[in-house]
Design a protein around this nucleic acid. Structure first.
Length: 417
RNA sequence: GUUCUGGUGCAUACUUGU
């Protein structure tokens, strides 16, 4: 029964898991600590922390109490929700309950700190972990590797990588992926490929993730041909490109303005049975808009909606920018309304697009209408919006107003660039 | 049988005479 429940939760079928749980209990089967943990995890996945509390009370009446795994689940969920303080509180409260935090507990919090940019605290916590006599595992180091890799801190990432071996542990595929990602993102493909060779040298088999990182690295430096070679290599090794791999190449092609290539690849992926996701569409829509092919972008947008994929603010901003530049203000208004109807609201980029568009046409008054609306909505003007207004004044031959505005900009503590 | 780590659009999306 527990395996079934766990399977459902893993598939994100939380509602069904809960229904089945109730049926099982009604049938007179008594839940145990595993059941409790599976259900707590289910509630956490849905961010239903309130439900967790009542559920724990219910279980306590049956004599089943939270254990370390329960706490780990709760702590991880808090971290994912960005509630680091609560997570740390839970960690600290474990002692009172007679529970001893384990490596997974610390890993969860470490991960929380790293994902929230609190790398210093992560390092402190690693120290605390060692102080209480816990032995970090490869995941512990991988969490830190990923954290420092994401902020591009090469020297710290390499120090942590060395620590893995110094601790008597063996770097695994995730450790290598962090190193490869670090260098691929920096555009240092020689280093990335060196780690790629190293991992194969120690008998690890590169997977989709590794290949996609390398492909993305080549794309980033404009070497689409190398990216495609890497794609061929992965296929030769029996590793099939997935939707992320395709999205990565598509993005590379779009950035290089190779829209006919991306178009072809898009059809290829569909032919091979890989369903485009909302990233695929947003990537292509962005690419076509930037290339001035707004019609094509709008057709893709329709297709996206028909596929039941939800556009996000980036999708809308790309289209709004494209339509603005084309002068199709009717469509802009339509998209704007459509976006709001879907519960997404213009952000500082959306406003910048419209402010700049009106300024480019010398319609400073109109631009200020959006400026005011933006400020009313609690979004502060930034360098981009100030630059646009100054440009607008210059366009309409109002150099003195432009200069006055530059003064206001400095007054508002926005540094001119 | 339950909890912790890696890849894609987007924070490098909007301004920059062209």
């Amino acid at each position: 029964c527990n395996s079934l429940l766990a399977g459902l939760v893993r598939m994100d079928w939380v509602d069904m898991a809960r229904d089945i749980y109730h049926e099982i209990v009604d049938m007179g089967v008594s839940p145990n600590i595993y059941t409790l943990n599976i259900m707590v995890n289910a509630f956490c996945k849905d961010r239903r922390f309130d439900k967790v509390d009542s559920f724990l009370l219910e279980m306590a009446e049956k004599g089943i109490f939270p254990d370390v795994v329960t706490y780990n689940t709760l702590i991880d969920a808090r971290c994912r929700a960005g509630h680091l303080e609560e997570a740390v509180q839970l960690l600290n409260s474990m002692d009172d309950k007679g529970l001893k935090p384990d490596v997974a507990t610390y890993n969860a919090v470490l991960n929380g700190f790293c994902k929230n940019g609190q790398h210093g605290k992560a390092k402190e916590l690693l120290g605390e972990m060692l102080d209480v006599g816990l032995v970090p595992n490869v995941s512990t180091f991988n969490i830190l590797l990923g954290g420092f890799c994401k902020i591009g801190d090469t020297s710290e990432t390499m120090r942590i990588y060395d620590k893995i071996a110094n601790s008597g542990l063996i770097p695994d595929i995730v450790s290598f992926s962090c190193m490869i990602d670090l260098f691929a993102k920096k555009g240092d493909m020689n280093q990335a490929l060196a780690y790629f060779r190293d991992m194969k040298g120690v008998g690890l088999v590169p997977d989709n993730v590794i290949y996609t990182m390398l492909i993305g690295g080549f794309c980033r430096i404009g070497l689409i041909s190398e990216a495609l070679k890497m794609r061929d290599e992965m296929v030769d090794h029996g590793c099939l490109p997935d939707v992320v791999t395709y999205n990565t190449i598509l993005n590379g092609m779009c950035k290089e303005r190779r829209l006919s290539d991306s178009d072809q690849l898009f059809y290829e992926m569909v032919e091979r049975g890989i369903s485009p996701d909302f990233c695929t569409f947003t990537t292509l829509i962005y690419g076509y808009c930037k290339d001035g092919q707004v019609e094509k972008a709008l057709r893709l947008f329709d297709k996206m909606l028909k596929s039941n994929l939800k556009p996000d603010i980036v999708t809308y901003n790309s289209l709004i920018d494209g339509c603005c530049k084309e002068g199709n203000m009717e469509k802009v208004n339509e998209l704007w309304d459509d976006m709001c109807r879907r519960g997404m609201f213009p952000n500082h980029i959306t406003y910048s697009i419209l402010i700049d568009n009106h300024c480019s046409k010398g319609q400073v008054e109109e631009a200020f209408r959006f400026w005011d609306e933006m400020v009313e909505n609690g979004i502060l003007p930034n360098v981009v919006t100030y630059n646009s207004i100054i440009k607008g004044y210059c366009r309409s031959g109002d150099a003195s107003k432009a200069e006055k505005f530059l003064g206001k900009m400095v007054n508002d503590c926005v540094v001119p660039d």
